[in-house]
Amino acid sequence: MASAQYTRQAGPAMTEATPTATAIRPPQPVKMVISGGFGVGKTTAIGAVSEIEPLTTEAAITEVAAGVDDTSLTPRKTTTTVAMDFGCLTLDPTLKLYIFGTPGQDRFGFMWKDVTAGALGALVVVDSRRLDECFPAVDYFEREGTPFAIAVNAFDGVLSHSLPAVRSALDVAPEVPVVAFDARSADSVRESLIVVLEHALMRARGY
């Protein structure tokens, strides 16, 4: 692809890719990720804070795109389809936050790079009764150096395990925030996202 031609935003001001561009200036897009095991409340959380109904985008991963040897001439190559939910939130006319949910299954780790590249940070949603399901996400963000926080979903308002117990079981670094949250509550999800961003801010300042 000829993406070298695309204009990369160089500063706070937007630049236009072609001299004939319209006067319409899109907002600067920023991205956060909500991750975690299957059925843990990712889509609920996205829906709670998004200003639009969460959308689902499907990514067709061909074997070519997945990095397997060239099969582009093979007419019956397989394609795997992964569905990703996302929502967005206009913070001001120049800044728009996109919130993407990562596909739950570990075997689609290769999709995560697409979802998480350039993300400000990630919230890993945890059901404390099924802690192991969040391990792939925790491992991934630790490895990539993406700032993240753990959000323990309180199903029906009740935490099955205490936050210190969850922290201890996950064995995350002491500076990684572990908070309780309710995926259905917009306030709760927003506060948890702020926790992630403040953690990212601390890290960016070198603690």
Partner: peptide
């Protein structure tokens, strides 16, 4: 089509992080 590729600053852009935090708080 005009294509605006976002800056790939990620979680290390202090100014952006502050603006997003402020934006979320304002909604809150």
């Amino acid at each position: 089509l005009t294509v605006h590729v976002p800056r790939a600053a990620g979680g290390s852009d202090l100014d952006i992080l502050r603006r997003v935090i402020d934006g979320l708080r304002a909604i809150h």
